[in-house]
């Protein structure tokens, strides 16, 4: 069993299945609370602000009956004074039973896990990994459709820099799924991910226009960031071409729409009240999934 949750690459299918099943068990406790992790302390080390993710971990720990210590702003800690990550982790592991860490440097969570004797959860290491996001994405799809096998999932927008879609594609490749990759040429899925899809025999299609979308079960939309474009006009054009609103929604049939949030303008507000919108449910699923991960690593469930 996993000692830490650092990267989706460390997961075998059975690890994922275990967490998804456990997350289902956590659903009622996510509303009522529990004392499964009573007396346990989670260190929450947020070296860069990410309020949503942080609060989701804190809420999950509280629902398990445990408590949280830590920081969310490096200004107030010795980190600014030049303390190394390794030293910070070595100190915090003595205060707590598990550590959740977010740090913009890639590989920081892996290093933390090597330093720490208590389990470490990666809540984002730069553009590398954010495994609990991937787990909650999988959980959301499975909860909605009752399965992952046999589904067609479209990924839309910035597939080049979108860490979320890389990890999701990687995780989905353990299942019997088909992918549709929708992006402009400049933001196509990296060759490395494509190679992995081929090695694992995942059928995929690459298309450029939303109008060419075949029937799919899920559309996973991503943020298209301005910084990725040299030409601001190109950004505006791309952003508009992949925007989901009432009119483009007709191209997507019954497909459920997911998004890691926060969105900018990828999905129009008018879509929120349609049966297609799954993104708020998806965000809410972060609680039972993170409860499952915490409970498992803390060793408070069988």
């Amino acid at each position: 069993m996993l000692h830490d949750v650092i990267s989706i690459r460390d997961f075998e299918k059975q690890d994922i299945e275990r967490i998804l099943a456990l997350a289902e068990d956590m659903e009622p406790l996510a509303r009522t609370g529990s004392d499964l992790a009573k007396g346990k302390i989670l260190s929450s080390l947020f070296f860069e602000p990410s309020t949503r993710t942080m609060l989701s971990f804190h809420a999950a720990m509280e629902r398990l009956g445990g408590s949280v210590i830590g920081f969310s702003d490096t200004d107030t800690t010795s980190v600014k004074k030049g303390e190394t990550l390794a030293d910070t982790v070595a100190m915090m592991e003595r205060y707590s039973d598990a550590i959740v860490i977010r740090n913009p440097l890639e590989g920081s969570a892996r290093l933390a896990a090597e330093v720490s004797r208590v389990p470490v959860i990666n809540a984002g290491d730069g553009s590398n990994q954010h495994p609990t996001q991937t787990l909650l994405d999988l959980y959301t799809i499975r909860k909605e459709f009752g399965r992952l096998d046999g589904l067609t999932v479209a990924m839309l927008g910035d597939l080049k820099y979108g860490r979320t879609v890389h990890s999701l594609a990687y995780a989905l490749s353990m299942y019997d799924v088909s992918l549709v990759l929708v992006s402009p040429t400049e933001l196509r899925m990296p060759p490395e991910v494509i190679r992995h899809l081929e090695e694992t025999s995942v059928p995929y299609d690459e298309i450029m226009r939303l109008e060419d979308m075949p029937p799919v079960d899920v559309v996973y939309a991503t943020r298209i960031q301005k910084e990725r474009f040299a030409d601001p006009n190109e950004y505006e054009k791309t952003k508009d071409a992949y925007r989901i609103d009432r009119s483009t929604l007709t191209l997507l049939g019954d497909a459920k729409i997911m998004h890691p949030l926060p969105r900018v303008s990828e999905i129009a507000k008018e879509v929120d009240t349609t049966p297609n919108a799954l993104y708020f449910t998806q965000a809410g699923n972060g609680i039972p999934v993170r409860m499952a991960v915490l409970a498992l690593l803390l060793g408070v469930v069988a």
């Binding site: 440097l105 890639e106 920081s108 290491d125 730069g126």
Partner: peptide, 12 residues
Amino acid sequence: SNPLCITNHEEV
């Protein structure tokens, strides 16, 4: 080769 890699920022 990744400038944002932790190994380029801490003694690892």
